[in-house]
Amino acid sequence: MFKSEEVHQNLEAKKNPSGFFDSYSETSLKYDPDRCINCKRCTQVCPHAVFAEGNEHAELANPASCMECGACAKNCPVQAIEVQSGVGCAWAMIGAALRGKDMDTECSCGGDAGSCCGQSEKTGCGGK
């Protein structure tokens, strides 16, 4: 595992010690600055400025804003970033849970079989 994971979680813990009424303070994002070659692609693709440009390598500037879209990991040429990507679609996840299926595989919009947004027939994703 990446050593920065620990740092990331500590940082989050300080920001919101209880996590009370905030389910979004922790994410599955993991970043290993040692692998980073400073290509800056992650800073270009992230829609929430989670990564910032740095001198030696990209900086994990705002991890709590991560929405796990997976753009950074997908476009990192050296696999310095890991994230369990997927659309946070409650509709499909609840449906999967009620049908006794795995919430993760069933609602994985990132995979080939993903059909989260399609099944719920929502415009989703801010309608962009």
């Binding site: 991560c66 929405m67 409650a90």
Partner: peptide, 24 residues
């Protein structure tokens, strides 16, 4: 409200899942 997470531009899967278990 919980279902609206699927239409927003910022909610993470991890967070939505946590919400489902906490509040549903």
């Amino acid at each position: 409200a919980l279902n609206f997470t699927g239409a927003t531009t910022f909610t993470s899967r991890t967070g939505v899942k946590k919400e489902i278990f906490r509040y549903v």
